[in-house]
Amino acid sequence: MKRTAYLIGIIALQVILLLSIVGKYQYIAMTGKPITLKTAPIDPTDLFYGEYVTLRYEVNEIDRKHVNDQLTVDDHGKTVYVLLRQSEHPWYDPASVTLERPEPGGNEAVIKGVLQYLADDRIHVKYGWERYYVPENTGRAIEQQQSLLADLRVSDTGEAVLERIRW
C-alpha cells in the first residue's frame, strides 16, 4: 500500500501543480486592478496552444524619455518595471521605466516585463501576455483591426492577466 501512496502522491503533485498555476492567475484576474492598454494585432498559430493573435502593445516600445534609470546594453534580459498612468484617454500610457518596483498611485499601475533591447530613441519590453488565444479560424477578424484595446488585470507585484480584447 506504500507504493499506492507514492502513486497518489505523484498524481496529486501533478494536480496541485496545474491548479497552482490556475490559482496564481485566477487570483490576479480576480483581485488585480483593471487597466486598459492600446495594442495592434498579428496572427500566427502555435502547434500546442492553437491559433492566437500576437499583440503588439504600445507599452512594448517605450520612448527613451520615460526611462529613468540609466539602462545599458548589459541590462538586456533584465526585469524592468513599467509604471503606467491613465490621464486623457481610457487606456494607460507608460510614465516611467525602472529596475526597482515603484509604488503606483491612484490612477497608476505597475507592470513587470523583460527588457528585450535598447534602440536609439526607444526601448523594447516583453511581458508574457502578448498572445491572445482564439478559437480556430477566428483570428482573421481580429487581425484586420488596425488597433485594439486590451483589458488586463494587474497585481501589486506587476504580474498581469490579459482578460479580453475589444475594438
Partner: peptide
C-alpha cells in the same frame, strides 16, 4: 499546461511547461 496557457493568455516561457510536463 496548454489549456491553462489559453485560459490566461500566457505566452512567456512556453518551454517551461514542457519541462514540468517531462518532470511529471
Amino acid at each position: 499546461f496548454f489549456l491553462i496557457g489559453q485560459m490566461f493568455q500566457l505566452s512567456s516561457d512556453p518551454v517551461l511547461a514542457f519541462y514540468l510536463w517531462a518532470a511529471g
